[in-house]
Design a binder for these strands. Structure first.
Lengths: 343, 343
DNA sequence: ATGAAAGCGCTAACAA
DNA sequence: TTGTTAGCGCTTTCAT
């Protein structure tokens, strides 16, 4: 026996389908009508088909969150925040993963036209014109948690990487660390670009020059280890330097573009018996759950991922209410979460 | 201007809607027909509405994965595995989070009747009769990644916790560690129960008695820290023992029910200057990404989360093909990933 | 307050 | 091969 439909309910309740629909949606009806319908619903175990409903009303009451890498703990923070505001508003949240490629993001955005959800929060790693175009032309509202040009005319909420970098550099400086190195993620990504510029500016503003800079192949732990090895060999093997000389040239602090990279790096430091923070201080970014779980606990720039998630969700809900409102560009300010990886 | 429908495409192509539908679905048509339809589709930027389609054909080509806690890294391993097989089969995967309560799980399973997806993989922390009932009565196939009674008659793929515990205990024993303590998660959860029994059996089988046992409030890092403190105070403060005596009573190894708990515990050990593995060895379970990211890298029982995810997805696809096949109960065998948290 | 009926966008008989 | 049409399960006029 197949799933009961509204027609079945109507039949066993002895009323019309319209009446069933009405009581199901809380529209005015007599006591008795409500009673009869509810009994029938109970008896049949009826559950309305959301596809049919949304086909008719044009809304699914689902929202989608698309993230590039479920393994990145920064997304769990964001996900939790989005989930909270979205479910409070009566929406169901589903999350999908896109992978690191722009084309996948574009396909996802285009795919929203299929009617999967009433809106989309997307946090793209890489952005190109195609993606922006697909977002602008998307049939459902989309807000991007990240940075796209103002000219794109879409709602965005992004972090302030430069400010975050400043926080990191100045903290290090205050602790007397001046030989600062930098482990970035891929510079062809949005966050990678922002971090690179932010780091350069922050160093310059403080009259510092980077001791070393390496670029990891992506924002993962494995890439962080590899970048760590590269960093180590670059500062040690630049010439046949004596130990003392090498020490003098070696960084006494390194900033990583995210927590995953920072933790990967710390593993490599430990591998060559460099102790954190005594020999080298380490600062991550994102202040994800991993930062407090790592050992030593990682000082990390809190880029406000929870707040970004919250604000992004709010923006999305607002735009669903009113598609004509002028796009907002929110930037959330960073703070520094100081832990034991810095002195 | 609103979204183009198949009717619009038919109109601009000068053909019938049926013909459009046919070429869109790759059914036989003349060269010219295909040509005209494709041009119209291109011109209008037409994308078929999946709701309407699935209302008609009864399938959504979406599958749902429901996990209790997105912050638990064991789920990202599983998620990746599920995603891989599911997308290879032409399905779209969406993941939702349920929270730790059974009622939420039940609501989710019941909700599947709304037609969100063609199938569900669920990994429930707690199982009761209601949940089993809802699974059996669910309108779409569901496979549970976890342990439910055989009598439930549902497809399951589960880990072998007892075997895993044996691996852990015997590894410790081989390293000369006999004063073993245990940090479990809540015993009112399915994995909690399994771990508890597995640990007890493994110890008994080796003629060992646990030095201490504590139960964390859930399977999180924070709970692990708290449990760690409790463990430490229970072995230290049992009486006004001398340092030497306390040392003798203290564990020289502890097994934790998952990686998150193990890492939380390690932080507390470090807080009282106990070094891992010299003073106390630590073994986690799940062998999640966190195990290699932690410091020292965590020896962990690999409960096969990737394989469980893969098999669960395969089971689901198989059942979607054939609803009548007799339920299978797959159990995947554990291995031990030895890292530096054990000597 | 309730019921009859149209129609959301699509697919699948069935006819031609 | 192509077109006409019924209908998937629901909501929402429009009458009553």
């Amino acid at each position: 026996m197949s799933r009961p439909t509204i027609a079945g309910v109507a039949r066993t309740a002895g009323v019309s389908v319209a009446s069933v629909s009405r009581v199901l949606n809380g529209l005015p009806a007599t006591e008795e009508m409500v009673e009869r319908v509810q009994r029938a619903v109970e008896e049949l175990g009826y559950v309305p088909d959301s596809r049919a409903r949304s086909l008719k009303v044009g809304r699914t009451f689902q929202l989608t969150l698309a993230v590039a890498d479920v393994g990145n703990p920064v997304y769990v923070t964001m996900m939790r925040a989005v989930e909270e505001v979205v479910s409070a508003a009566g929406y169901r949240l589903v999350v999908t993963t896109t992978g690191p490629d722009v084309v996948d993001e574009v396909a996802l955005v285009r795919g929203m036209a299929r009617g999967y959800a009433d809106g989309l929060v997307i946090s793209p790693l890489r952005v190109d014109d195609d993606l922006i175009k697909s977002i602008r032309e998307c049939d459902v509202p989309v807000v991007v948690a990240g940075n796209v040009p103002a000219s794109a005319g879409v709602d965005t909420v992004r972090a302030n990487s430069p400010k975050g970098m400043l926080l990191a550099v100045e903290h290090l400086l205050a602790k007397g660390r001046k030989r600062i190195a930098f482990v970035n993620g891929p510079v062809d990504t949005v966050p990678g670009t922002a971090r690179a510029k932010g780091f350069a500016d922050a160093m310059k503003a403080n009259g510092l020059r980077p001791v070393a800079e390496v670029e990891a192949v992506d924002f993962t732990f494995a890439a962080g280890r590899e970048a760590g090895r590269e960093l180590l060999s670059s500062v040690a093997g630049s010439n046949g330097a004596s130990t003392a000389k090498a020490r003098a040239a070696a960084p006494d602090a390194v900033i990583a573009a995210n927590d995953l990279l920072a933790v990967g790096l710390m593993h490599e430091l430990a591998a060559v018996d460099l102790v954190v923070p005594d020999d080298v201080a380490v600062i991550g970014m994102d202040d994800s759950e991993l930062a407090e779980q790592s050992f030593p606990p990682l000082t990390s720039v809190n880029l406000g991922s929870a707040e970004r998630g919250r604000r992004a969700a709010e923006l999305l809900l607002a735009r669903i209410e009113d598609a004509t409102r002028t796009p907002r560009r929110i930037v959330v300010q960073p703070t520094l979460s100081i832990r034991r990886s810095t002195p």
